[in-house]
Simulated scan of single mutants.
Amino acid sequence: MRKTILLFAAMLAISGNAFASQLGLYGGLQYQSIEDDENTELGVLSARLGSFLTENVSAEVRIGTGVSDHGERISGMKFSVEADTTLGAYFRGGVFITPRVYPYIIVGYTQFDYTAKLEGFGSFSDDESGTSLGIGAEFFINKKTGLTLEAMRLLDEDDIELDALNLGVVVNF
């Protein structure tokens, strides 16, 4: 019985490492629908590049730019907010529950640069940064290409909360 358990454990270790070594580096694009605590919605297109450190842990960086802004009228004046850039560094931890499905948790650090404009008063640019936390899953179409779905709390600082729903494509190199 002991030999069977050891053989089974060795087979799992070898198969897991072989699959992880096929993954190696990965990259992708994703659309982020970002909403703050005042229901301001922004769209960001992000590129990501990462690498698996072990079969269950990866590290990645992301850079994004705003593609849709939020506008409204306040006392007859046009007010708008737009995302300028987002930068982030993250660790993901997960497990392949099937060869094609990889759910994970993600934790890291995000910097969010934005510009607010009020008609007749000019514009104001600022940045916010802080710890990020989320959950996600990748659904692989084949060994190289998958779809990503994530829900993240990008920031939770004193003056701002940012939540993001991310939908993207990932490619393993």
Rank of each mutant, 00 (worst) to 15 (best):
Val107Phe: 11
Val101Gln: 05
Thr40Ile: 15
Ile160Met: 13
Ile105Tyr: 05
Gly130Arg: 05
Asp159Val: 10
Asp127Pro: 02
Tyr114Pro: 13
Val95Cys: 04
Ile106Lys: 15
Pro99Asn: 08
Val107Glu: 07
Glu119Gly: 08
Ser132Cys: 07
Phe112Met: 07
Val44Thr: 09
Ile97Thr: 13
Asp36Leu: 00
Thr54Pro: 11
Tyr104Gln: 09
Glu55Ala: 15
Gly64Met: 04
Tyr26Cys: 13
Pro99Ser: 05
Gly130Thr: 09
Ser125Val: 06
Phe121Ala: 09
Glu35Leu: 01
Gly93Phe: 06
Ser80Pro: 03
Thr40Gly: 01
Gly64Cys: 07
Leu149Val: 15
Lys78Gln: 08
Glu161Thr: 08
Val101Tyr: 04
Leu45Cys: 04
Pro99Asp: 10
Leu149Gln: 03
Val95Phe: 12
Asp37Lys: 11
Phe124Trp: 12
Gly136Pro: 09
His70Glu: 14
Thr98Glu: 08
Gly88His: 02
Phe112Ala: 02
Asp84Trp: 01
Ser129Leu: 13
Val101Gly: 02
Tyr104Ala: 11
Ala47Met: 14
Tyr102Phe: 15
Leu49Cys: 03
Gly66Val: 02
Thr98Ala: 12
Ala89Tyr: 10
Arg73Ile: 09
Val95Gly: 04
Gln30Val: 04
Ala59Gln: 00
Arg153Ser: 11
Gly93Met: 08
Glu60Ala: 05
Ala59Arg: 00
Asp37Glu: 15
Leu155Val: 12
Ala89Asn: 07
Gly28Phe: 02
Gly71Arg: 10
